Simulated scan of single mutants.
Amino acid sequence: MNKDINILNIFTNKINLLDLNRTEIEHFIESLGYKEFVAKQIMRWIYKYYCSDFKEMLNLNKKLRRQLEETACIFAPKFTREKISCDGTIKWITSLDNNHNIETVYIPDKNRSTLCISSQIGCVLNCHFCATGKINFKRNLKVSEIIAQIWQANKTLKSRNINTSITNVVFMGMGEPLFNLKNVVSALKIILDIYAFNLSKRRITISTSGIVPALNKLVNMVDVNLAISLHASNDVTRNIIMPINTKYNIASLLSSVSQYLKKSNANHGGVTIEYVMLHGINDSRQNAEELARLLKRLPSKINLIPWNTFQGAHFLCSTDNHINIFANVLRKNGFTTIIRKNRGQDINAACGQLTGDNTKNINFNNKI
């Protein structure tokens, strides 16, 4: 069993402050008899100095430090394994309870450092082109388990004297974020908070396969960038490769996205449409023209994603020629279209390849 999980058992009856956003920490501090400004002091220690020991928070009085030790903890599950790609991408694996793992991917670039984080252990959606959908869903991540991925990434970079911190966070790792709406929104409030990670709303992206009721709630809860995993230009194809479409079809999804954009300040350039390129399935010129018609009234930019293979998959990636033709059709129709450069393929860290580094629970019975 992971040593950190044994340590966590000591804290079973304590409040993990990484599970609380600022408002919740303020309420907790007030319950101990202190004013809310103390919560900001504690958050600075946690998120600016990566301090997890109340004894080291020297600007807090001794009585409060003792109270905090008795009632609270700061527990961030550690990265237990690391894989480094030839392109500089790093994949970190975190071991949680019951031998369950999640994966976090760090993608360094010239002017930015993007962290791709997970929100669930496994995924219930079973998108047929995605390895995560082939492993058994276990549970939603806690707020602290979401936040810990950023906390540990920044802490790791700092320990290696890498003079950068995470500049962008994308919820594109394991799981469907909108199926863990409450915890994801609470985590987002921490990521945005000036006393925590202090990231701009335009530097945070939630990617969803289209959970319409949750998306309708999200618009009134938090404002961040939105990415839609569309991957098909019509319901017939999407029903086959993404079973969630039989419940929330393309029309209902795009209608919900339109409502989100009306209220959003983060999505000035429109929503990002993610479209995986699958040979002979969704990559024809006709598909591109159909997609252009589908999105003509929706402010959007389109990311074309060359499909990444995984063990037991039954797809082929579209050829470079097909992808370029597809992109040119969209560009001629006025869409900003980017062909995504896949990162971390050699360590199974690219889009659609995350499995918690554990393939024994993969179900390959669902074929199309």
Rank of each mutant, 00 (worst) to 15 (best):
Q67K: 09
Y260S: 08
L291K: 03
E30G: 07
D223G: 05
L125T: 00
D53T: 12
F11D: 05
I74H: 06
I15Q: 04
S95V: 09
K217E: 09
N9I: 11
N358S: 15
V169G: 06
A72M: 05
L60M: 04
N16W: 06
K83E: 04
Q259W: 02
T337R: 02
S256R: 02
I5T: 06
K134N: 08
I93M: 02
I211C: 02
T167E: 01
Y49P: 00
H279G: 13
N98S: 09
I135W: 00
G122A: 10
I166S: 13
D193T: 03
F179M: 13
V222R: 08
I206E: 00
N328T: 14
V184S: 04
I323T: 14
C130S: 02
C127P: 06
T80Q: 06
L295W: 01
I25L: 13
N308K: 11
G173L: 01
L218I: 12
F171T: 03
I368Y: 14
I325W: 00
L215M: 08
H279S: 13
E26C: 12
I273E: 00
D223S: 03
V170D: 00
K158S: 11
P77Q: 05
N333C: 13
N168A: 07
G312I: 10
I368H: 14
E69T: 12
G210A: 13
L226W: 04
D97C: 12
N249I: 08
K158V: 13
I84Y: 08
K14H: 11
Y49I: 00
M174W: 02
D346W: 14
V329I: 11
S159D: 08
T355I: 15
I273V: 02
I250T: 06
C73D: 12
N249F: 01
N13K: 15
L68M: 09
N342M: 07
G270F: 06
A153D: 04
F137A: 11
Q41K: 15
E176Y: 09
E70G: 10
H27V: 03
K301A: 01
T80M: 07
N303V: 04
A232E: 03
F315C: 12
N111D: 08
K134G: 06
Q120W: 03
P213F: 12
D283Y: 01
V212L: 03
L230T: 03
G210F: 12
K158G: 09
G173H: 06
V169F: 15
F335P: 00
L254F: 03
W92F: 15
F197T: 01
E30P: 08
T132Q: 04
L192T: 00
N249P: 11
F28Q: 09
N321C: 15
I368S: 13
Y49D: 13
T237K: 05
I93E: 00
K217H: 09
R293V: 11
M174F: 10
K78W: 08
P177N: 00
W151Q: 05
F179S: 14
L215Q: 05
G269H: 15
K134R: 12
T272I: 08
L96I: 10
M221V: 05
G122Q: 01
R81F: 07
G210W: 07
S252V: 07
Q259P: 06
A148M: 09
K83F: 07
L218G: 06
A350Y: 02
I241A: 04
I74M: 04
D53C: 11
R331C: 10
H268R: 15
